[in-house]
């Protein structure tokens, strides 16, 4: 079971308190009616699904209830950073450098 740091509560809490929310930084178009069918399908259904570092949404369901974002390595499950929703994605190169591996 992962320990996840909630950036709102500022605490490491067990994975059981959280709910996964899919890829982060997939913004809903501001004016959906002007988006082409193809682009809308991309928005709805297509995700990057990387083997490696992934920015993803989590919600502290059994805690503060807030959505936030995490940078997780999909191979090692290592969570490199968590940050509040709305904050910019951290620089991945810096992150991976900082943690050594």
């Amino acid at each position: 079971m992962l320990l996840i740091r909630c950036p709102v509560c500022e605490m490491d809490r067990p994975e059981l308190e959280f709910r996964y929310g899919g890829e982060a930084h997939v913004a809903r178009p501001l004016d959906p009616s002007s988006v082409s069918d193809q682009d809308w399908a991309e928005y709805l259904y297509f995700r990057s699904n990387p083997r490696g570092v992934h920015a993803e949404r989590w919600r502290h369901t059994s805690g503060c209830g807030r959505f936030f974002n995490a940078i997780r390595h999909t191979v090692t499950d290592r969570i490199l950073a968590t940050y509040k929703a709305g904050e910019p994605k951290p620089d991945l190169a810096t992150l991976t450098g900082e943690t050594g591996r």
Binding site: G21, R57, G86
Partner: peptide
Amino acid sequence: LAHMEDYLQTEFT
């Protein structure tokens, strides 16, 4: 409620 919170917190801020 989770669906509502999701949009309220992340899209319709």
